[in-house]
Simulated scan of single mutants.
Amino acid sequence: MEANMSVVDVVSQIQQLKQSGETMSKKKIKHSHPDLLQNALYYFPSWEHAIQNSESV
């Protein structure tokens, strides 16, 4: 699998979803934003890690 988004794009999109009040559960994101989840898992060991990294930026 190759990423089609940069890590900056992934973090930025996670931040935007959180700010808009989107449910951040892996199951919901897999259904509503599968490309985001796939790219996040390319850069981070888990969806939770991706969320944590988006908070520290």
Rank of each mutant, 00 (worst) to 15 (best):
M1N: 03
M1Q: 09
E2W: 00
E2L: 10
A3M: 02
A3R: 02
N4E: 06
M5G: 00
M5S: 03
V7F: 06
V7M: 12
V7H: 10
V8N: 12
V8M: 04
V8A: 14
V10S: 08
V10P: 00
S12I: 00
Q13S: 06
Q13C: 08
Q13W: 08
Q13T: 09
I14K: 02
Q15E: 06
Q15H: 06
Q15A: 07
Q15F: 00
Q15C: 10
Q15D: 05
Q16F: 12
L17H: 04
L17W: 08
L17K: 07
Q19Y: 07
Q19I: 06
Q19L: 05
S20T: 01
S20V: 00
G21Q: 09
G21V: 12
G21T: 14
E22D: 02
E22G: 02
E22Q: 12
T23P: 01
T23S: 11
T23C: 11
M24S: 08
M24F: 11
S25L: 04
K26G: 06
K28F: 12
K28Q: 09
K28N: 09
K28A: 12
I29V: 13
K30S: 15
H31R: 15
H31C: 13
H31K: 15
H31T: 15
H33T: 11
P34I: 08
D35L: 09
D35K: 08
L36A: 11
L37N: 05
L37A: 11
L37E: 11
L37R: 04
Q38M: 13
N39F: 00
N39T: 06
N39W: 08
N39A: 10
A40I: 00
A40P: 05
L41Y: 02
L41P: 02
Y42K: 11
Y42P: 09
Y43H: 10
Y43A: 01
Y43R: 06
F44N: 03
F44T: 01
F44Q: 02
P45W: 06
S46G: 08
S46I: 07
S46T: 14
W47R: 11
E48I: 04
H49R: 10
A50P: 08
A50F: 03
A50Q: 09
I51E: 09
Q52A: 14
N53V: 12
N53I: 03
N53K: 13
N53W: 12
S54Q: 10
E55N: 15
E55Y: 14
